[in-house]
Design a protein around this nucleic acid. Structure first.
Length: 260
DNA sequence: CACCAGGCAGTGC
DNA sequence: GCACTGCATGGT
């Protein structure tokens, strides 16, 4: 299978705020993914995507089985701005990350910026995971002071709460994959430290629930400015994908720089 | 110094 | 139900 940049763009997908363990140097992208023993490292360049297409793990990670051309065509009929967002970065895809890694990462993300999130997660991985993303079990027994030392601040107890809920089975992540979406959100949000935004990101990026539509500060700007009085329902059953095009466009294009 | 970052919990009304 | 505030930390 031969992929074009329009079908998969590394530079538009990896730094679009979905995942936090990647870097780029001289055109070579390094992506780290997976928890504990399932840890994997990918090295790939845009000019040769065969390390992704030839490896089922990374093919799944980059969601190669979903037809984004149809989705973009549908989205583009919604409004000129939605079409513009699709054309701006057509090679964005929704990553299929480990559910625990996604959930934990987005607990870290709250009221934080992407650069600092990446640093914190990297320190958590070396301190608790020997390079791999730490297991829920490892973090369930972490000391809050240690977590604060890594820069987690007020999120330290949230991480421990979340890890314990997963370990003790109050949250069964795999069951959330097929559950009624509102019920799945409600289960996640029972944990102190998980609100609607973190729950939606975990479901979208960790459990591939494309119906989730995370509303962060950028998406609130987009909706208020471009779709006033509307909600995610105008984007259909895969609203989460539309969300990602809009989020990336809003954050990197400069279009919203001087809009309240 | 202020304000912000892929928010959330707590409080008051 | 909705509006407001404090929160750790590092960057502008």
């Amino acid at each position: 299978m031969q992929l074009t940049e329009r079908q998969l763009s590394l530079k538009d997908t990896l730094p679009s705020g979905q995942c936090f363990r990647f870097s780029e140097q001289n055109g070579i992208w390094t992506v780290k993914a997976g928890v504990g023993e399932n840890f994997r490292v990918l090295k790939v360049s845009q000019s040769d995507l065969s390390p992704i297409t030839d490896d089922p793990f990374w093919a799944r990670f980059f969601d190669l089985d979903t037809d984004y051309e149809n989705l973009k065509a549908e989205f583009s009929t919604i409004s000129p701005l939605m079409k513009r967002a699709c054309d701006y970065a057509p090679g964005i895809r929704i990553l299929n990350q480990d559910p625990w890694e996604a959930l934990c990462s987005f607990v870290v993300s709250q009221n934080n910026n992407i650069k600092r999130i990446m640093g914190i997660i990297e320190r958590m991985c070396s301190f608790y995971g020997n390079g791999a993303f730490p297991t829920a079990k490892a973090l369930a027994s972490a000391k809050e002071d240690d977590l604060r030392m890594l820069g987690l601040g007020f999120r330290a107890p949230y991480i421990v709460n979340t890890a314990r809920s997963v370990c003790e089975g109050e949250i069964d992540l795999e069951k959330l994959r097929s559950m009624e979406i509102e019920q799945a959100r409600a289960i996640l949000m029972k944990v102190k430290g998980i609100g609607p935004k973190v729950a939606d990101c975990a479901l979208l990026f960790g459990l591939h629930r494309l119906d989730c539509f995370p509303m962060d500060v950028w998406m609130k700007r987009v909706m208020a400015s471009c779709f006033p009085g509307q909600d995610k329902s105008i984007f259909g059953p895969c609203a989460g994908v539309a969300q990602q095009y809009l989020f990336h466009f809003a954050r990197t294009s400069g279009y919203f720089d001087d809009k309240e």
